[in-house]
């Protein structure tokens, strides 16, 4: 009978090929998986739900127009340059307007009138500014 070579390791399973395969699998999944960025919420309550009691004082209304190129007009006056994600001028003016209506005990209602062809990002920019200021009564009108 031929003598066996590795008498010492006879009882051990050779794990090397398995480890090779496992590493290959690991590298494959690491490369193909893109880590998903978590999506966040920006809520809008559509006005149909807001059943106001009859004696509610009329809110202070402001109109925000969004033009097709993303230019934002607050009550007809241009605020920030188009193409910006943050709207610092709009945010500042709105927070002043909200402060003064809060002092008068009135709610602030903002009616957004986006151009039908404007991008969703421009509308989200305005909603973002409204949320930063704390204005919750938002309605959409025809742009």
């Amino acid at each position: 009978m031929k003598a066996r070579h590795s008498q010492i390791h006879e009882d051990k399973v050779d794990l090397t090929p398995m480890i090779d395969i496992v590493f290959l699998l690991l590298i494959f999944f690491m490369v193909t998986t893109t880590i998903v960025k978590e999506e966040a919420d920006l809520g809008v309550k559509l006005p149909s739900s807001m059943a106001a009691p009859p004696d509610t004082p009329l809110p202070e209304q402001h109109y925000i127009d969004i033009l097709v190129d993303g230019t934002v007009l607050l009550n007809g006056m241009p605020t920030d340059n188009p193409g910006q994600t943050s709207l610092p001028n709009l945010t500042r003016t709105l927070s002043q307007l909200k402060e003064s209506s809060d002092r008068a005990g009135l709610k602030t209602l903002v009616i957004i009138q986006p151009d039908p062809e404007t991008y969703q990002q421009s509308v989200v920019n305005v909603l973002n500014a409204l949320k930063a200021v704390g204005i919750t009564s938002v309605s959409f009108g025809e742009g």
Binding site: G43, V44, L46, S48, M50, P116, T118
Partner: peptide, 24 residues
């Protein structure tokens, strides 16, 4: 374009749900 979002708004309101959340 926002007109498509408006259509979804209208459909949502028609379905009786006022709470809309945008993904961002």
């Amino acid at each position: 374009p926002f007109k498509h979002v408006r259509e979804v708004f209208a459909a949502t309101a028609k379905g009786g749900v006022p709470d809309v959340v945008f993904a961002t």
